[in-house]
């Protein structure tokens, strides 16, 4: 592991260094992933650009109009413990709690967790389920995309070489909405999901008026189970329709077999996790 290191104090400076150093440049946020990758020589950055000194990019704020804003440099620990996140988007705080150890959560940032685009990452499913958007800065200024469009493949995002993820916006959750994030991993702590599912359900007069189902670790990217969502929308969420949605979600998953689980096992887990996540979301929507 050998590289040069620069700190930047602004987004403009970051973009200009990314342009200057070209393909050998890599953004450094918390470093808990990139430094491991560099030590193992899975990546060989020539220049790390430390964006942590950029002011205001770790903030978590709430605005009644636009919802919850989470700066890309907010640490996973800050998100886990933020009373704002716990109140406005509890499922995001719960997912943060599941990631790594306290030591890792104290350094790792939400921007890093998203931009490393590991299929089993904890933060994408709940954020996508809540309809989060990603604000991106690059040579042409700002652009905003639905968060799910950030992910292109394992460790691949739609960000340009000179673009950075700046902020997430999680829209205000209307009343009668519940959400849940569940994952399965063989160990309780310090383990990666072999399958995960996030759900968001809104109930109007006892019918599901809106829902999102997001699967993690069972496709090259986090994916929406759109057929399962369509099956639920407009329905009274009874056991039959929930089971149908869970089966459709399992069919929509594209899991692989690897050292951690077989594709068949992952598909079965999707069914169970989606069913449970829907039941929890529906119960929470009814109670809110």
């Amino acid at each position: 592991m050998r590289f040069e290191y620069s700190e930047v104090a602004s987004l403009d400076e970051a973009v200009s260094l990314l342009r200057q150093y070209g393909d050998g440049a890599h953004v450094l946020a918390g470093g808990t992933d990139i430094l491991v990758m560099a030590k193992e020589e899975r990546v060989n950055p020539e220049h790390l650009i430390d964006i942590k000194p950029i002011q205001g990019m770790a903030e978590i704020t709430w605005d009644g109009q636009r919802g919850l804003k989470i700066g890309a440099l907010a640490t996973i620990r800050a998100i886990e413990r933020s009373s704002l996140v716990m109140e406005k988007a509890p499922v995001v705080s719960q997912a943060a709690h599941l990631l790594g150890s306290v030591q890792i959560r104290n350094r790792a940032t939400v921007g890093g967790n998203l931009c490393q685009a590991v299929p089993s990452a904890e933060m994408p499913p709940p954020l996508i389920a809540l309809g989060a958007t990603a604000r991106i800065f690059g040579p042409n200024g700002y652009r905003t995309i639905p968060l799910e469009h950030l992910f292109v493949g394992p460790r691949r995002t739609s960000l340009g070489r000179q673009e950075l993820l700046v902020e997430l916006e999680v829209p205000a959750v209307p009343a009668n909405t519940g959400s849940a994030y569940l994952r399965f991993s063989p160990r309780k702590a310090m383990d990666l999901a072999i399958a995960s599912a996030a759900a968001m359900v809104r109930l109007d007069d006892g019918r599901c008026s809106e829902c999102r189902i997001v699967l993690g670790a069972v496709a090259p990217t986090p994916i929406r189970a759109t057929k399962a969502e369509d099956t639920l929308r407009g329905e009274r969420p009874g056991a039959g329709v929930i089971e149908r949605a869970a089966e459709l979600a399992a069919a929509e998953a594209m899991p692989i077999s690897d050292i951690r689980a077989s594709a068949e096992y992952r598909r079965e887990l999707v069914k169970v996790l989606v069913r449970r996540a829907l039941l929890q979301s529906i119960a929470a929507a009814g109670a809110s």
């Binding site: 290191y5 470093g31 808990t32 430094l35 491991v36 790390l48 430390d50 942590k52 620990r77 306290v102 030591q103 890792i104 104290n106 350094r107």
Partner: peptide, 13 residues
């Protein structure tokens, strides 16, 4: 004030 893995923090950081 926060526990961190010093193997994943650069000295310059």
């Amino acid at each position: 004030g926060k526990a961190v893995n010093s193997c994943l923090v650069l000295a310059v950081e």
